[in-house]
Design a protein around this nucleic acid. Structure first.
Lengths: 131, 131
DNA sequence: GTGGTTGCAAAGGCTTTGCAGGCAC
DNA sequence: GTGCCTGCAAAGCCTTTGCAACCAC
């Protein structure tokens, strides 16, 4: 059922994903993992990523239409998606509690979590566009 | 360039979308619109929806892997996605301002908006599961 | 009449899956 | 030895697109 065996493939995917700083998608991970295990298939990468998400090691970031990207950052943080270059920037900021407000207004629902995402222009693009 | 002509197809899509209470996806809209314009194609539905999104009449809600759903609700509101049935429930609640907090922590980025989404069990499923 | 719009069908991109062989345990 | 995992390739799903005919203006 649950993926439990520590195979070469899974080790390699874990290593790549933990080292990644880019919120990579499956294709990028596949490409990198092939440097460690050249015979791995894209299907296995997807299966492994699914397992890692299920186990909570990864958080999927899915933007409409585009490939799902994966985030292995342990620290609690939020994402800023740049409208200019599409990059995902981590924001480590403490935000006001939202779940409480929603629960107070809608006690009939069992609200468990809130997901927040910011949209704007990242510093790099801001500088680039200012020229 | 921009879709401007008021064709039978576009009228029908508009009518269906405005009447919809379900955050429908393109397939559901297509099915409904065919009751009004039986010869319409799915491609036209997609093209029309894209145009309506661009013009600001609709807000796309894209969940990873699943079909994009469209929201025509004018009032400002948030969404609760039920982890049990997948339904999207509107929450009309005022939340604390988030953009300001993020801007204060990261003045180098040009943060423009925040998107919030809740996750939990909707009232219907809660009742159903309690039995 | 003109050019945006449509229908059709094919293609596209990402992701999942069936199956036989292989490997971790 | 057992059954989970892998590679391969095909299929699935949602969405986009090229093209000729069409119709709103």
């Amino acid at each position: 059922m649950a993926m439990k065996r520590l195979t070469r493939q899974r080790k390699a995917v874990l290593e790549v994903v933990q080292r990644a700083r880019n919120h990579p998608d499956a294709a990028w991970i596949y490409q990198e993992v092939r440097k460690l295990v050249p015979t791995i298939s894209l299907g296995t990468v997807y299966r492994t990523l699914d397992a890692l998400v299920e186990e909570g090691y990864l958080v999927p970031i899915s933007r409409g239409g585009e490939a799902t990207r994966y985030d292995a950052n342990r620290k609690p943080h939020y994402h800023l998606i740049c409208t200019s270059c599409g990059e995902i920037v981590d924001l480590e900021v403490e935000l006001p509690e939202l779940v409480g407000a929603a629960r107070a207004a809608y006690p009939e629902h069992e609200i468990r979590a809130a997901h927040v995402e910011f949209e704007g222009v990242c510093a790099a693009c801001r500088d680039r566009l200012a020229s």
